[in-house]
């Protein structure tokens, strides 16, 4: 996969896809999308980058170990589920609040953080698999 065009375009494509994945993740509650899809899109983006430029640049780019990201996602999801315990509600009860930013009120909820946790788990785990296999195929 050493074509010049692919190598040139890969970083831009990857950035766009990651941006798009975040968009898909955040709109998921009301439109098609969500953590699973977003995570898969981001993981594909990293896989593309890895195919074009090799594994090491990807690892440098995402800085954390992919499985670390996945672990963080699981912890985030767990905590956002457990938050409801402090409000005398069962595990995983959604809590909603509205944060005023400029003139809009942005809904913020534990459910959103749960979905972000799902996103991180999927991104982390699948990127880890893809990178590991790419690494193998080169040695």
């Amino acid at each position: 996969m050493n074509t010049l065009i692919f190598r040139t375009i890969a970083p831009y494509l990857t950035s766009l896809m990651v941006l798009f994945s975040v968009f898909v993740l955040l709109r998921g509650h009301n439109e098609p999308g969500g953590g699973f899809i977003g995570g898969l899109i981001a993981a594909s983006a990293f896989a593309i980058y890895g195919i074009a430029w090799g594994v090491s640049p990807v690892r440098r780019a995402i800085y954390f170990h992919p499985l670390g990201i996945a672990g963080f996602g699981l912890v985030l999801a767990t905590f956002s589920g457990m938050l409801s315990i402090f409000f005398h509600a069962p595990f995983m009860t959604g809590l909603w609040g509205y944060v005023p930013i400029f003139e809009d009120e942005i809904p913020v909820s534990t459910v959103l953080f749960f979905d972000i946790g799902v996103y991180f788990v999927v991104v982390g785990a699948i990127t880890s698999v893809a990178l590991a296999l790419e690494e193998r195929s080169r040695d």
Binding site: I126, V129, A132, L133
Partner: peptide, 15 residues
């Protein structure tokens, strides 16, 4: 969820 899980499973089997 089944799609994602079966993909993880598939990847595991592959490896």
């Amino acid at each position: 969820t089944a799609i994602v899980i079966s993909f993880s499973f598939f990847a595991f089997l592959l490896v």
